[in-house]
């Protein structure tokens, strides 16, 4: 039997010390929390850095599909603003009293059919091999997925396409599937082509209607609205809007 030193006084000291160490590390900084739809998250990461340099504010970003983020907000997630990938999720939050301001459009998203394993030809969508999986974001929680499904349903061969569908949690996971070749074809956000260089071939689905991506200011309790409002105004500023357009969005 080996003896580990056991001494109740040392032990108490250890307890106090660890509590002290672990509680000590919180630094007080003005920060705002912004929930961002996955398709806009990669660009937002760049914009946030720019904004943080201009103002003495820390912007914490939380990414996910619009549906997941909006249900988190309803369950009490402490976010100051929400950038949805569509109008519906923002509007519902506004109507249910989570926001005092009407949603505003910050970008219009387009969709793209793409592949990292072969060439993309829209007309051959129905002829593609039975084993080629088609990735879309989950239509239940991601507006891009919903739009993608809607588009596929207009195809004459939809019943044959349906068993080949793979649902990703959000656009970023979908892009990862496409890039890995887990899915041979994918319908993702056009901005992904600008933000991530992973595609072998793509074709913009220009005839589908653009997704009106909107944000709402949420009634946060702790952070002053002023900072969040400042951030939203910054996103709508001409300079930033130009950047957004250059990354595959429309206005």
């Amino acid at each position: 039997m080996n003896r580990l030193a056991f001494n109740s006084k040392n032990f108490l000291l250890f307890l106090c010390l660890s509590f002290f160490l672990s509680c000590n590390s919180t630094e007080q900084h003005a920060n705002i929390r912004v929930a961002v739809a996955a398709n806009f998250y990669p660009l937002m990461l760049e914009l946030k850095q720019d904004f943080e340099q201009l103002h003495a504010v820390e912007v914490d970003l939380i990414s996910g599909s619009s549906g997941v983020l909006s249900s988190q907000i309803r369950q009490g997630a402490p976010y100051d603003a929400f950038f949805s990938a569509d109008l519906d999720y923002s509007m519902d939050l506004y109507e249910d009293g989570y926001s005092a301001q009407l949603p505003k459009i910050y970008a219009k998203g387009r969709m793209v059919l793409c592949s990292n394993t072969g060439t993309v030809d829209l007309s051959s969508l129905c002829m593609g091999g039975k084993n080629t999986k088609i990735g879309i974001a989950n239509p239940k929680t991601a507006p891009y997925g919903k739009a993608a499904l809607k588009f596929l349903q207009t195809q004459t061969c939809f019943t044959e396409l349906e068993p080949r569908l793979i649902y990703a949690n959000n656009i970023n996971q979908l892009d990862q599937y496409i890039s890995n070749g887990v899915v041979g074809l994918g319908i993702t956000a056009a901005s992904s082509i600008e933000m991530k260089s992973f595609l072998k071939d793509y074709q913009i689905l220009s005839f589908t209607e653009g997704l009106e991506q909107t944000f709402v200011l949420l009634d946060g309790k702790k952070t002053p609205h002023r900072l969040s409002q400042q951030f939203l105004d910054y996103i709508l500023s001409e300079e930033i809007q130009e950047i957004i357009v250059s990354k595959g969005y429309r206005l």
Partner: peptide
């Protein structure tokens, strides 16, 4: 917890997100 930086974004979540973002 969600995925809030400095509040609930723990290491395992950060890995998941990094993979998602490639």
């Amino acid at each position: 917890g969600g995925n809030i930086p400095n509040e609930t974004r723990v290491a395992s979540i950060a890995i998941y997100e990094s993979v998602e973002l490639m």
